[in-house]
Design a protein around this nucleic acid. Structure first.
Length: 566
RNA sequence: UGGGAGAUCGUCUAACGGUAGGACAGCAGACUCUGACUCUGCUUAUCGGGGUUCGAAUCCCUGUCUCCCAGCCA
């Protein structure tokens, strides 16, 4: 569990807007369906890390159960050992817990039910509804038919029950090589729904399973597994994404022919977020090809990535509650996610002054060796967070953005001859600048008004701007990592994710300066760097080195004006 | 050219035959020791065409567009 500076709360039903699934559940409760019981489940496959799209499903499933006094299980759909790993299981468990949800003692695996599934397969064979097929994968594909033509029945379709039983048992016993035979459902090769054209139930696969080891040489397909697992667990509302709509008739066919509890499947639209990607396959590509540093790279939309970036569970839950649930394929703007993290962090993150791109300011009339401690408010939104003392001296750093030698219209910050306020400190007026041989400003000279100590001038005169600063001799140097969207905004969709990758998605500022109050800070502490943005102390931080990830920028009216003028 | 699903402000979503509302984004202003926060105001939408009805986003017909499906992946 990450050590977060904020007290993260467990998830309680957040009063988001209603949605069609919630309406169905309310109806079902009123009608006494399932005895008024609500039981959902979140069923990830442990073949990758959870991302923000999964968060939507997690919030929906756990949220609905919480709201209606029901239960929600965590169940791993681990039917394909060739892609699944314990590492993924562990991280998924950690992520769901971090998001604030609790499955109590109901952690399950599809692999818990392998023996039961096998017995049910035998039942279907005995009922004449399943058969062992010797066709190769390629032959199965060739005989499946097309959208307009029915498929061809397998020549093995009418084997006797005894022969099927014998062969299936020998499949399990390892008598045949991988891929040599499958167990298929005998349904309808002419169905317009491909899922009903004698779908494969079991394949022979010699792969070590992360939980069952080498106990099994045959593994059930997801389609033969999922509905029955829901059934075993007494799931009442089996909520899944739209692409499984076509599979519902098959799941129903299995549970009906097996004569077991039928969960009600309800499909909703999966989350799409602008300028990023939520496909496990493509995320894996980004990791494996080294575009990002790992699954938890702060640019990644994975829960571990955005957690490291500085997003809080509260903000993610609020976001998930605000996007709604429907059956429309839409794309959510990233700005909405940013809105929710700003809203949360504004309330909770301690303010601190940090200079990302430092330029030195010398206050000529300030006494050389003098140091003053000035009081600064930790969070104007929360008085109980108190105040702290910040050292001030003759030489300070300000951000390069806060000085313009030739200020454009509407630029209120420091420029020659202009007076601004140094936050919590003094009014200063720029008197001159020093430039290097390239004409770049390397030092700014100012004078200060001693009467304005603390930031107010006794004569009541106003300044147009307040800027942040750090004392040069006291400041800590740190590394600021500034993030932008993972993918280019206008890049065409492509199978090669690299062509969409935004090369400016990470900018490292290794000479950033921050006030000394943060010395010894621990990873996963959230700050607002005043006038800059929200930052999260990164995992790479040690006693010697501070690294901060920019979670999100503050809203910036000036940047808009400036951009429009260009 | 088969089957399944879906179309409401720029984006997401609500309205369940009776004033098309909210959030985000945008714009304008107020406030401000963060050009932040907060507050105020504003702009913008029912896919097209026919019907039914006093009245239609909602019901009917018809057309158009979008998404998903032919893994021994999930």
């Amino acid at each position: 569990m990450p050590n977060d500076g904020l007290n993260e709360t467990a998830a309680t039903p957040e009063n988001g807007p209603s949605n069609f699934i919630r309406e169905i559940i309310i109806q079902d409760i009123q009608n006494g369906k399932n005895g008024g019981r609500v039981h959902t489940r979140f069923p990830p496959e442990p073949n990758g890390y959870l991302h923000i799209g999964h968060a939507k499903s997690i919030c929906l499933n756990f949220g609905l159960a919480n709201e209606f006094g029901g239960k929600c299980n965590l169940r791993f759909d681990d039917t394909n050992p060739s892609k699944e790993e314990t590492e993924y299981v562990e991280n998924i468990i950690n992520d769901v817990r971090w998001l604030g949800f609790d499955w109590e003692d109901r952690l399950f695996y599809a692999s818990d039910y392998f023996e039961q599934l096998y017995q049910w397969a035998i039942q279907l064979i005995k009922q004449g509804q399943a058969y062992v097929c010797d066709l190769t994968a390629e032959q199965v594909r060739e005989t499946r038919g097309t959208t307009t033509e029915p498929g061809k029945e397998s020549p093995y379709r009418n084997r006797s029950v005894e022969e099927n039983l014998d062969l299936f048992q020998r499949m399990r016993a390892g008598e045949f090589p991988d891929g040599a035979r499958t167990l298929r459902s005998k349904i309808d090769m002419a169905s317009p729904n491909f899922n009903m054209r004698d779908p494969v139930m079991y394949r022979i696969l010699r792969a070590e399973h992360h939980r069952t080891g080498n106990d099994w040489l045959i593994y059930p397909m997801y389609d033969f597994t999922h509905g029955e697992c829901d059934s075993i667990e007494g799931i009442t509302h089996s909520i899944c994404t739209l692409e499984f709509e076509d599979h519902r008739p098959l799941y129903d066919w299995y549970v009906e022919n097996l004569g077991i509890h039928r969960p009600q499947q309800i499909e909703f639209d999966r989350l799409s977020l602008a300028n990023t990607v939520l496909s496990k396959r493509k995320l894996l590509q980004l990791v494996q090809k080294g575009y990002v540093s790992g699954w938890d790279d702060p640019r990644m939309p994975t829960l571990s990535g955005i957690r490291r970036r500085g997003y809080t569970p509260e903000a993610i839950r609020a976001f998930c509650g605000s996007i709604g649930v429907s059956k429309t394929n839409g794309v959510i703007e990233f700005a909405l996610l940013e809105h929710h993290i700003r809203e949360d962090l504004n309330r909770r993150a301690a303010r601190v002054m940090a200079v990302i791109d430092p330029v030195k300011v010398v206050i000529d009339n300030y006494p050389g060796g003098q140091v003053e401690e000035l009081e600064a408010v930790n969070n104007p939104e929360n008085e109980s967070m108190g105040t702290r003392m910040v050292p001030f001296s003759k030489e300070i750093y300000i951000d390069r953005d806060d000085f313009r030698e030739d200020p454009p219209k509407q630029y209120y910050r420091l420029s020659p001859g202009r007076e601004v306020r140094l936050r919590y400190a003094y009014f200063v007026t720029c008197t001159s600048v020093v430039k290097d041989e390239n004409g770049e400003v390397i030092e700014i000279h100012c004078t200060y008004d001693p009467a304005s100590r603390g930031g107010n001038s006794p004569d009541g005169r106003k300044v147009k701007s307040t800027i942040h600063w750090v004392s040069a001799q006291h400041a800590l140097t740190f590394e600021a990592r500034l993030y932008d969207s993972l993918l280019l905004a206008d890049a065409p969709q492509s199978d090669d994710i690299g062509s969409q990758f935004n090369p400016n998605s990470l900018i490292v500022k290794s000479n950033a300066k921050i006030e000394p109050s943060v010395k010894g800070v621990k990873p996963n502490t959230h700050f607002q760097f005043e006038r800059v943005g929200y930052f999260n102390v990164d995992l790479d931080t040690t006693d010697e080195r501070i690294v901060c990830n920019r979670t999100v920028q503050l809203r910036d009216t000036w940047a808009k004006i400036d951009k429009k003028a260009r």
